[in-house]
Write a protein that binds this DNA or RNA. Structure first.
Lengths: 344, 344
DNA sequence: GGTCCGTGAGACATCGATGTCAGGTAATTC
DNA sequence: GAATTACCTGACATCGATGTCTCACGGACC
């Protein structure tokens, strides 16, 4: 049994054990330069025996470059981000990059700390789903320092960098239109805080569709708040207990969908209002009725962002790219419940 | 506009800019030792101006130690693991550790590559949800090399290291017992491949309960297979179309739950069989009936593992610990559907 | 026979931050 | 008044891997 305190063997140790110079060990490990067959064999043996593993810090200090990219998102535990994260990871691993990732928890300070930490660990590039109020001057400094960045899900105003975003506004408009076409005039919209980019984009799409259809806006039907809080029940109640309550509900993200569906199951008016959610989620098809959604493709978003970033990191300096991913309406039943003005 | 190619400023650059030695800059950055107020001010200014960021590689090369831990799990995109992952991350961040994480995708080779990569990047410790067939000799070598490890969700046979596991067997027995108590005698069990530790543990729990109740085993009611495949429909069909079909279904994990619930919604016999799933999932309470589950606590698992690992990393060498987390049965309706032998 | 190239291997400096040691001055203590 | 302490700073070596340079040998070629 060896002591657990034993330090890891270095190239010098291997060199000493096999009677060659450290540089020769380096040649063996990296497979560059000339090494005779016997020497190769001797060094390999010593490596195995000593359990030598190259110290990545020393190597990267010398090389200045590192096969590492960082991913900063809001919360890995959110299915949208966890799927995105997995996609990024797969692309990175396939190209022998290591992925650092961390959750900003929507906290600009934590987010900044994470980015600093990644950057000082030599991340060649970052994929960022920026928290609201991210300090753009700070990011710009990083960019200037040579750290490539791709923003996903949300942009940062005033930063020139690649983005991979969903068509939030168009998707929300399409969803709202879908409800209007089925005879709904009073459609409630529950979105995240107005400070969140995707939330306001989706709200804008919702309004676009109402305007196009010539339907009057009613601000009392719009709730913009983070769906975590216990306060959501009160917010929903307020909307549902209007004299003229909504006949359809549009959930602006999947966390709101869950909260709203839970509410509807327990307190919902019968018959149920029509329901449509932005972003698909597991079991949306198993609920009864199935939940109609505007689906995004987080895996595609992650994959595209990672590929884009890795191209940047390896020197691609084409002009900044802005990729917009189409959303897809998946009708499953809840969004097809007819409203009072249904003509069909 | 500065050139994006510009290299990041080093301590020497800062030192030159502020007219002091690199060592003094180091003192300022780390806040150790004596530095006069003016010097401090001058150095701070230079740091801001040059956008200096300490090179973590150089630091850690010198220090030999790194505030980094690694997390290896099966798939971040799985809600169980993504919640666990987030919990680990929070503990790590709170103690100023960086978290490396990657998905093994149940592939021992990929898993090994990840561990090697983490280890050579100086991870002080690892939290591992081991893939089936993980090479234990390899892990033992890492352990001997001074890398602390905590295993979560599954152990590795023959490795002496801390583990944080759920009470899979007890939980499954309790669940099965719950169904038996409601009059079920023919209970189907759908679990992951028999090579997966948790799957066989849960199967054992299921069998324990049947044996205790004096119910004859029927192997035709047991399916052990990864729930990914399209083949699941055929597997379920086979069970459902027995002459004497099950009156209750036990899903061995949440992926099986989803697959089975989807099947039941479309092809399920009416009235529905009783249903019970291992591991809770979002919307389980919104489905109708609500899904009765044996809940695990992935956040607690992650938190405990991280805390344990960080204690180990900072020198705690108490004997190996094996933490077992209790599971909790949450009755929501689907598991309370009465069977033919219900006496109540 | 001399030049050149292919092959094989080591000495040494270097990447950037920091621990150690060796100063130096000013203030405090006996 | 001498000795000790607190305060402030820099020179230098070091962590481990690797790029550069140098050297040495043997065969090929004109």
């Amino acid at each position: 049994m060896t002591s657990p305190q034993r330090a890891r063997a270095t190239m010098s140790d291997v060199a000493a054990a096999s009677g060659v110079s450290p540089k020769t060990v380096s040649r063996v490990v990296n497979g560059v330069g000339y090494v005779s067959a016997e020497t190769l064999e001797a060094v390999r043996t010593a490596i195995d025996q000593l359990g030598f593993r190259r110290n990545e810090f020393a190597r990267q200090l010398r090389q200045g470059t590192t096969a590492t990219i960082g991913l900063v998102l809001e919360d890995v535990a959110d299915p949208f981000y966890s799927v995105l994260s997995r996609a990024v990871e797969d692309v990175a691993l396939a190209q022998d990059y290591l992925l650092l990732s961390a959750s900003s928890a929507e906290d600009p300070t934590r987010s900044r700390r994470i980015i600093e930490s990644f950057s000082s660990r030599g991340a060649a590039g970052l994929i960022i789903a920026p928290a609201t109020d991210t300090d753009s001057a700070f990011l710009r400094a990083e960019l200037d320092a040579g750290c490539s960045m791709v923003f996903v899900d949300r942009p940062v105003p005033g930063i020139r960098a690649d983005t991979v975003l969903a068509d939030n506004r168009g998707g929300a408009a399409a969803g709202t239109q879908h409800l209007i076409a089925r005879g709904h005039r009073r459609i409630a919209f529950f979105g995240d805080s107005a400070s969140v980019y995707t939330a306001t984009e989706r709200l804008a799409g919702y309004r676009d569709a109402l305007t196009t259809a010539g339907i009057e806006h009613d601000d009392r039907l719009v709730v913009m708040a983070p769906p975590h809080a216990d306060a959501t029940a009160a917010l929903i109640d307020t909307v549902q207990k209007l004299d003229d309550p909504p006949t359809a509900i549009f959930a602006g993200n999947n966390r709101w969908s869950v909260v709203l569906l839970r509410y509807l199951k327990e307190h919902g008016p019968r018959p149920l209002p029509a329901f449509l959610g932005f972003d698909d989620f597991e079991l949306s098809d198993v609920l009864d009725p199935g939940i109609t959604v505007i689906a995004q493709d987080p895996a595609a978003m992650g994959q595209l962002a990672a590929e884009l970033l890795l191209r940047r990191v390896s020197g691609d300096d084409r002009p900044t790219q802005h990729i917009q991913l189409e959303t897809r309406l998946i009708a499953r039943g809840s969004g097809e419940i007819a409203g009072p003005f249904n003509s069909s």
